[in-house]
Write a protein that binds this DNA or RNA. Structure first.
Length: 973
DNA sequence: CGCTCCTAACC
DNA sequence: AGGTTAGGAGCGA
């Protein structure tokens, strides 16, 4: 290398992650292999190479290398074992792309450099030093602040995504120090993502100020005693050694030995054929064309390269299924689709041997099992607790599996089956049921494994186990959840569809022992702690075994079917978020509820007397059967309809119609029903769910709806009344604790906005952009009535039609909703389609798509399956069609709020705010916020929610968020 | 006791 | 008319 030469050093590992996170996931068309990061990387590299061929640009490189991290442990771990210890495993769909990206660099004919025991940054530092010594210039293609220390005359950092070059002055502008002081600054500040400790209480601003004043780290530490601020002084004195250690960790070594000499990095013209054949193999159509054109290669003449790719499984493969693959080349050359198929076939008739399961009775055996997990890198787990609720049940035992058929149960808190636990001494209990590992000792052995970033924990509905273990100080990470994988693959079978027993029967051909078989049910229900440990071992170890085998079958399907990003971005990251919301609960005022109950009871008693009087006899107004006989039999009122079982229908609709004709009794029944509902379902029941602190903890189900929405139960906090004044009063019982306020933030008209975007309706989009009243606009378009002075009834009808459209409108449904004749409703729909022809196109194309694929998709790639959409039964078919029209709209809204929830906590933390997210009600999030932080918190919440679709989806309509704070939920809403 | 039906609360 | 959960009545075992 000579003076005037220019070396480009690409921080390859950093670019992989940036490409992966910044770009929408992408799968290879032919087999679903994830290639999004590869695509981003290749585009970036091509742009650099193109620039380098353009000699008119002054910064064109003469030398070029792409540098990668080699392994996760480096010499820095010897200095400090915790270095980068809190790094989580890379996403599953990214792992197979690492090898492909190295292939890509070779296809570009560029040197690909990495070194055992060193980070990319060390190699970049060494090459930079060599190049400068030789008189050359260096451009480091990266934006990592860890590399800023290398900036000096002749060396710049280039952030390609932002097209920004960082030199001395830019570093000073950004951090308040010049590059030569960056090491000292980093030593003080530390780095949470790399686990560099730094000095507590010192952030970048303070650090820069201190370095400005004292010159450098050593001087600062030596003179720390002079600092006025007490806390700052003490921390600097106490953590001086930690700062020095941090400095050694962040310092990049110029003398890292280089296996590839600098001069070998000399750039040469890429080999067009080699590169095009690689890009063809990746199926990057646009880039292939572009590259072929520029390099003068005829793409049609070039055969696609044979690229072997590693399967998505982590760690050594433990599944006999793969060893049985005839190719003999094991999984290294399997595509995801092939791997998924081989796993499916091998697991279809799994053999289970319950007698092989182990009961863990002592700490040494437990430790040995954990070592097995360290070897394999995977561990399926299942916790057994004393009740059904993860929030309250006591941990009774934990089961594990390390590979198919190898499973164990660890009893922790079993008691004597004779039921005299209280009367027996511990010694007696042990004589009766055998020894158990002491609880605290077991937790101490489990914790490092369950929190080990290198061991993937697998659970079925792992939010449950996550919550249980959190109560014992263990935060399970990283993890996979077979229920959520199954749900991402196909959410159509609701409720039991993703339960373990059903998955096992469907995918493994094996029926596990049911909870009922183990513990009985009803009056015969036995506490699991009192069941025989041998029996529980069979049951619990089997569950862990089944879970692990389900994972082997299900996990590869994510990549094979193009659903890895749905799982990785919308399902898995939500687990800890929801777990924390459930843990927090919401404070509830017992007094308010009990006063309301009293008031409702009085009113109900009055109504009951009136009802009996009017009916001429006492009967139970809560019995639709008795009521129907009174109204349509005894009193002979007209307009009776029958339900599908032939009973008289007495729903609100029927009663309201009768009331409108002047009948008093139905009016009273409607009132009675409403109050009885409020009292029975809410004011009487909610207090039973309160904990000792007065908080109610709901449970969110992530896999219970077909569309991607969450559901809430025990209690359901997603259907707290809001419509009527009496109902709304119940919301005043949901309060903020002293010193805090509740904030409610909800999306305005999110589903209609999504419809406007997806169906591409100009009038709707304009109305939303201009913040017009959407229902009034619709009415105006349809009926030709000006928005000014529009009668409420006209707007109401348009609103009903708008909702009807979202629900996959039918004349029958609209007629029912508006209480108008069916043909009139049909006319409305006809006129709507005339005014908004794009809506009809959307509906037709959605139906056609659903019939072709048997599923529809949200904007984020979530699939909703409709296997019955081709049913010969017209009503079944029509129902599926309406649901298929609704699902992309409802599901996209659900995806958007999921994204907002996942981003919310980091965004709040980043802003230094302590707000806590408590509830989700489909388009609304409820938070608990310190009073003096409300003003700062509202804009953060609004922004995260409004921007939640980005960058994956660029909606052509703005998302608006209304957010308000108050002492209780009613006023905040 | 466990299941189905009907009704009604929410978005 | 799309997506949910919950409670009470009623019925059969």
């Amino acid at each position: 290398m000579n003076k005037g030469d220019h070396l480009f050093l690409v921080d390859g590992s950093a670019y992989i992650f940036r490409a992966y996170h910044a770009l929408p996931p992408l799968s290879r068309k032919s087999d679903g292999m994830p290639v999004g990061a590869v695509a981003g990387f290749c585009n970036m590299l091509w742009k650099l190479v193109e620039e380098s061929r353009d000699t008119s640009v002054g910064v064109a490189p003469t030398h070029f290398a792409v540098i990668f991290d080699h392994s996760s442990t480096t010499f820095r771990n010897e200095l400090y074992s915790e270095y980068k210890a809190n790094r989580t495993a890379p996403p599953e769909d990214l792992v197979p792309q690492f090898a492909l990206i190295r292939e890509a660099v070779r296809a570009f004919d560029l040197p690909c450099v990495e070194k055992q025991g060193y980070e990319a940054d060390d190699l970049i530092a060494a090459y930079t030093c060599r190049a400068i010594e030789a008189g050359g210039d260096v451009t480091i293609v990266s934006s990592d602040k860890d590399l800023m220390q290398l900036i000096r005359p002749g060396v710049v950092l280039y952030d390609q995504m932002k097209d920004k070059r960082l030199g001395r002055d830019e570093v000073h502008e950004k951090f308040g120090v010049y590059p030569e002081k960056m090491i000292d600054l980093q030593a003080l500040v530390g780095d949470t993502s790399d686990n560099v400790p730094g000095v507590p209480g010192i952030g970048p601003k303070t650090a820069a100020q201190l370095l400005e004043e004292y010159g450098d780290l050593e001087t600062l530490l030596a003179r720390a005693g002079e600092i006025k601020q007490a806390k700052r002084r003490e921390n600097l004195l106490a953590f001086a050694e930690q700062a020095r250690l941090s400095k050694r960790l962040v310092t990049l070594d110029c003398d890292t030995p280089l296996d590839v000499p600098l001069d070998d990095l000399f750039i040469h013209e890429p080999d067009g054929e080699k590169l095009v054949s690689f890009l063809k193999a990746m199926e990057f159509v646009t880039l292939t064309r572009r590259v072929a054109a520029k390099l003068g290669t005829d793409a049609s003449e070039v055969a696609r390269a044979e690229i072997a790719v590693e399967g998505p499984a982590r760690g050594p493969d433990l599944d006999p299924a793969v060893a049985a693959v005839p190719s003999g080349s094991a999984q290294l050359s399997l595509t995801p689709a092939q791997l998924a198929e081989s796993r499916r076939a091998a697991a279809a008739n799994s053999v289970f041997d319950r007698s092989a399961y182990v009961t863990i009775r002592d700490a040494a055996t437990l430790a040995a099992w954990m070592d097995e997990a360290r070897q394999t890198g995977i561990l399926s787990i299942d916790t057994e607790i004393s009740s059904l609720s993860a929030m309250t049940g006591d941990l009774i035992g934990v089961s594990f599996a390390t590979r198919a058929g190898r499973a164990a149960y660890l009893p922790l808190a079993h008691v004597s089956p004779s039921g005299e636990a209280d009367l027996l001494s511990d010694k007696k209990v042990e004589e009766e049921i055998g020894p158990q590992v002491p609880f605290a000792e077991a937790m101490a052995i489990l914790k490092p494994v369950l929190e080990d970033a290198a061991i993937l924990k697998i659970g079925q509905n792992i939010k449950f186990d996550y919550l249980v273990l959190r109560r014992h100080g263990i935060t399970v990470s990283p993890f996979d959840d077979t229920m959520l994988i199954s749900y991402a693959l196909d959410a159509s079978a609701s409720l039991e569809g993703h339960g373990m027993d059903e998955l096992s029967e469907r995918l493994l051909g094996h029926k596990p022992i049911s909870y009922k078989e183990l513990c009985g049910s009803g009056r015969g229900l036995k506490a699991i702690a009192a069941c025989s440990i041998d029996k529980v071992t069979e049951y619990a170890a089997e569950d862990a075994d089944v879970t692990l085998r389900l994972w082997l079958v299900l996990k590869p399907r994510l990549a094979a079917e193009g659903l890895a990003s749905v799982y990785e971005r919308l399902e898995r990251p939500l687990v800890p978020v929801l777990a924390r919301m459930e843990e927090r609960g919401i404070t509830t005022d017992r007094q308010i509820l009990s006063r309301l109950s009293g008031r409702f009871a009085q009113k109900l008693a009055g109504l009951e007397a009136e009802i009996a009087e009017m009916a001429g006899e006492a009967f139970n107004p809560g019995s639709p059967k008795q009521l129907g006989e009174i109204l349509f039999g005894k009193l002979g009122l007209p307009g009776g309809r029958k339900t599908k079982t032939g009973q008289w229908s007495t729903d609100v609709k029927v009663l309201e119609e009768l009331a409108a004709e002047g009948h008093e009794l139905p009016r009273r029944i409607v009132d009675w029903r409403q109050l009885a509902k409020l009292k029975g379902t809410y004011t009487d029941t909610l207090p039973a769910h309160m904990d000792r602190e007065g908080r109610i903890h709901t449970s969110y189900a992530m896999a219970s709806t077909t569309t991607g929405r969450l559901s809430s139960s025990e209690p359901n906090l997603q259907n707290i009344p809001v419509r009527t004044e009496e109902g709304r009063a119940i919301r005043t019982a949901f309060v903020a604790p002293p010193g805090k306020l509740l904030v409610s933030a909800d999306y305005s008209q999110i589903e209609l906005r999504i419809l406007a975007h997806i169906a591409d309706i100009p009038q709707l989009k304009d109305a939303f952009r201009q913040r017009h009243d959407i229902h009034a606009m619709t009415a105006s378009e349809m009926f030709g009535v000006p928005v000014e002075g529009m009668p409420a009834e006209v707007r109401r009808r348009a609103k009903a039609i708008n909702f009807g459209i979202i629900y996959g409108i039918s004349a029958f449904g609209l007629a029912n909703q508006l209480s108008i004749p069916r043909d009139e409703a049909g006319l409305y729909i006809k006129r709507y389609f005339e005014r908004f022809p794009g809506i009809r196109d959307y509906m037709d194309s959605t139906k056609a798509f659903a019939k072709e694929h048997l599923y529809v998709e949200t904007l984020f790639g979530r699939r909703v399956h409709y296997p019955d959409i081709k049913s010969p039964n017209p009503s079944v078919r029509a129902f599926c069609e309406r649901a298929a029209i609704n699902a992309p709209i409802q599901g996209t809204a659900a995806d958007i709020i999921r994204r907002a929830m996942i981003r919310m906590e980091p965004a709040l933390a980043e802003a230094g705010l302590s707000a806590r997210m408590l509830l989700q009600v489909h388009d609304e999030l409820v938070f608990e916020v310190e009073e003096d932080e409300v003003a700062a918190t509202l804009p953060v919440i609004r922004q995260v929610m409004a921007e939640a679709a980005h960058p994956r989806v660029d909606l052509s309509v703005p998302l608006e968020v209304d957010a308000k704070a108050a002492g209780n939920w009613e006023e905040a809403h």
